[in-house]
Computed example of a mutant assay.
Amino acid sequence: MKQGDLVIRKSYGGDVLFRIAKLNKQLATLKGTDYRLIADAPIPDLLLIPDPEEAAPSKQVRIKVDESTQRMRQERQQQQRKVQQDEEKMGRALNHNAPYFEVPGKVLHLDGDASYLHKSMDLYRQMRVPAQGLHAHESQMPAIVQQLLPQINPDILVITGHDGVLKKRETHDLYNLASYKNSQNFVNAVHIARQYEKSHDGLIIVAGACQSHFEALLQSGANFASSPGRVLIHALDPVYIAIRASYTSMRETIDLADVIHGTISGIDGVGGIETRGKYRVGLPRPKTLTGVKPTV
């Protein structure tokens, strides 16, 4: 085995597909290919997967990802039809067939994993969500949030990366932040973001990763967070919520049950509070003004 190989853990029944991130004589550091999970495992516990397309965990996840992505596209098509109907009403009121323009919510996405960030930005581009992404270690995120929020002024902030309940921990209390790998870092970043914008509708915050301290993240000011059931969440779950927030009208609240159902991890993976969307429609669409003559 070598760095970069795809493997599963025999002791866990091969439930998650991993890529070997680091390797020494006895121990391997693994990164989940689909889930935001970093784990250590003895090399004899690993089983090499030569064809990732045939790996059972990967197959199951791909089905869920395809379902979630298709759901997003269908929701987007429904929204566009509704906006077109509203446009026709506005056109009749103005006695003019003026085409509308869309202003989806702008996303700032901070990710502790470079490969997951790449996947996330691809999905934002596919769904035409204006987004800026930055890869940073989770411990750096509070300082980065403080620096970037005034510069970028996003509508939606995603704070994610790697997390998990520590095997070797001082306390077995799962309500104690010391029991988690990075939940304290996420909480600190959310707290700083909420100091910058106190309104939950002014700045929508999506925070957390696998097994994160859901309650602490909400208490610190997040609108949506992981993980109520302390389960592994899919790498794209925070992105899905951000896209829904970006394309939900500012006149409406995000349908909590619907958006959670649409994630890959479901109700044990993510939760949140009632929040207004960030999508706006404008009228008329900006024109090309090359033919305008100066009057002054």
Rank of each mutant, 00 (worst) to 15 (best):
M1F: 11
D5V: 08
L6A: 12
I8L: 10
S11F: 09
S11H: 10
V16P: 03
I20L: 08
A21Y: 06
K22S: 08
L23F: 06
N24Q: 07
Q26N: 15
L27P: 00
L30H: 08
A39N: 11
D40L: 11
P42Y: 06
L47P: 00
L48W: 12
P50D: 12
D51C: 01
A55S: 12
P57I: 10
S58R: 12
K59A: 03
V61C: 04
R62K: 13
R62V: 07
I63R: 15
D66N: 13
S68K: 01
S68C: 13
S68G: 01
T69R: 10
M72Q: 12
M72F: 12
R73P: 00
Q74I: 05
R76Y: 08
R81F: 01
Q84I: 05
Q85V: 06
D86V: 08
G91D: 14
H96G: 05
H96Q: 15
N97E: 14
A98I: 09
Y100Q: 07
P104I: 02
G105E: 09
G105H: 06
K106F: 15
K106C: 08
S115D: 15
M121N: 03
Y124E: 03
Y124V: 03
Q126Y: 13
R128A: 10
A131P: 05
A131F: 08
A136S: 15
E138T: 12
Q140D: 15
P142M: 12
A143E: 06
V145S: 03
P150I: 09
N153G: 07
N153W: 00
N153K: 14
I156P: 04
L157Y: 09
I159S: 01
G161P: 08
G164Q: 05
V165L: 10
L166V: 08
L166R: 15
K168S: 13
K168M: 08
L174F: 14
Y180C: 10
K181A: 14
N182H: 13
N182L: 01
N182V: 03
N185K: 07
F186P: 01
V190I: 13
Y196V: 04
E197L: 01
K198N: 13
S199P: 02
G202F: 00
V206M: 01
A207L: 08
F214N: 02
F214T: 10
A216V: 02
L218R: 11
Q219I: 03
S220Y: 04
S220V: 05
F224G: 00
G229T: 11
L232V: 06
I233K: 02
A235S: 13
V239S: 04
I241E: 01
I241N: 03
A242C: 11
M250L: 11
L256G: 02
I260G: 04
H261P: 00
G262F: 02
I264D: 01
I264V: 13
D268V: 00
G269W: 00
G271N: 04
G272E: 02
I273Q: 14
T275V: 13
T275P: 02
R280D: 01
V281E: 09
L283N: 07
P284C: 09
R285T: 11
K287V: 12
V292P: 01
K293I: 11
K293N: 04
T295G: 02
T295P: 00
